[in-house]
Amino acid sequence: MSQYRVLPGPEHFLPPAAASMGIQLPNPGEAHINGVIVSEDKAYEEAAKQFLMAKVPTIFPGPLVLWAWNEKAAKKATAVRHLYNTLKECVQPGQTPMLIPMPDYRPKYPKINPEVEINPNHPNLTIWHNKIDCCMFIGVHCHQANLSLKIIRGGTSCYTIAMCAQAGHEDAMLSFRDASVEKIMKLAEWVKKLKGTVQPRLTSAKSGASN
């Protein structure tokens, strides 16, 4: 088993792909935390804790849920909105949850507006600008999510969660697989369940992303 752990960065300019360091993807019904395979329930609990601890917990919905390609995508979008609303209800004063879209993958040039969107080719800009210390990717195609997660791990101290509809992401600090409406709703339930039991890190050195 690999000794490498997928931890919040900044790791360095070009962090290795976690897969190349021996990190494996979870099997159905499992997830991973920092590269260690765990049960899905443990991952829900940890993801909810991370959200409730963060100063700026943020959800980044990608094109697969932002655009209503089909009924399933629209339902997932509703579930994402529910998770965000739950998060807003459950955080304490001083914590500011955000919902920032990744509408497409164009390497927008010369710049993006980090207040209103995130771009997979320079996700660190949005994270730095909003001082995001915990984020979740959902509805982002895997190859773009991998790219972004590595850049985030390389240049920021943001904790990354991937709610992946496929086999999960080694490069996230916590990754679910086979994302569905039910799984998003279950995460929202866990956030509600842990409300008030987690101390937010409002003043610690960890708060805010490194730049």
Partner: peptide
């Protein structure tokens, strides 16, 4: 017909996409 924004997330889309 595919170029539609999910209703639940319409408000967060940057204005150029809307």
């Amino acid at each position: 017909e595919k170029i539609k924004i999910s209703e639940a997330l319409y408000d967060i889309m940057p204005s150029d996409y809307q």
